[in-house]
Simulated assay, not measured.
Amino acid sequence: MPGAGVSQLEREDIIIDTKPLLVAALKEGIQLHRTKKDSLLVGMAALFLLVVLAPSAEGKNTLRCTVVDEAGNLVQKGGEMVLQSISTAKEWKQKTNDKGIVEFKGLNDGSYQLRGNLPGFLIATSAPIELAGNQVESCQHTLPSVEFYNALLQGALQAADQKKFAEAEQKGKQAVALSPQEGVAYYALALTYAAQGKTEEAVAAAEKAAQFDPEKFKDAVAQVRIESLRAQAYAATEKLDFPAALGIYEKILSIAPNNATVYFDIALVYGNQQKFDESLKAIDKAIELDPERPQYQQMKIRLQDLYLKSMDEALELPK
């Protein structure tokens, strides 16, 4: 009967006709199960391919680092070091051996950073360390002692105060190199630039300080910019270029309109030109903003004396 079924010949023809489809399906990764036996064979084959072809999840890289202090001396045995994956933030902790070496095994390919966790030393996070290809990677990591680091920063600031700018910059840059993630190092370097009137360099270093320690150095950029401009104004005053100095002080006041020190400096510039009216106005503003500063009161008395003396000289009749 038509439509009642399919003859044996017709079924065989269908099976034969579907073989190309089966081959194509297998090529496309589609599992077709014709019998339980075929299904089992296909499953075992797939499992075999999975075992053979799938990459191992276990990393085989090893990082072996020698840890030293600022003088190149090995750190003490048992010092804890922390390795962190940059991509996953996962951490591993190991301790140094009697040769100052710390070793991390079984690491996947990727970028890592090493830091210290030793009493009396800075954390000192390393630059990124790249691991790949199931290799053993070696490095040397420096942990500056807190005592040495503080002395280095103080030395940079003292050298800047003494106008030993080359020495100040060298020490500031050394502090940054020893611990690139310490905001205070960038701030010290910023101050050495500011003392020379290098505004762009000072601001860039201050921005780095704020980046690494925003709570402590959130106002550092404005402060450093002001100090750098003041250094430029001082240089102009020493050259007796009073208009240039006053122009720079006006820039500072646009940043910090209530800076008493700037008004004190302006009073000195006008005083050096014997413009005592303007000088006394500026010193009065400084006193208004910071009435507890005795230097301001003393300077006002001195300016008043100079003003009266200039008036007496002006009123003196020729003989």
Rank of each mutant, 00 (worst) to 15 (best):
G3N: 05
E10P: 01
R11K: 13
I15M: 00
A24T: 02
A25P: 00
L26C: 04
T35F: 02
L47E: 10
L47Q: 06
T62I: 09
T66W: 10
E70F: 07
A71M: 05
A71K: 11
G72D: 03
N73G: 04
Q76W: 02
G78R: 15
V82S: 00
L83M: 02
T88I: 07
E91T: 15
Q94H: 12
G100E: 08
F104L: 08
G106V: 08
Y112L: 12
G116V: 10
A124V: 12
A124E: 09
T125D: 00
A127L: 15
G133W: 00
P144E: 04
G155V: 08
A156L: 07
K163A: 13
E167V: 13
A168E: 13
V184D: 08
A188S: 11
T192N: 10
A202C: 03
A206R: 02
Q211F: 12
F217E: 14
D219A: 06
R230L: 15
L240W: 14
G247R: 08
E250N: 12
I252A: 06
N258I: 00
A260I: 02
A267G: 11
A282M: 11
R293P: 07
P294I: 10
R302Y: 15
Y307P: 01
Y307C: 14
M311W: 06
L315Y: 09
E316P: 05
K319H: 13
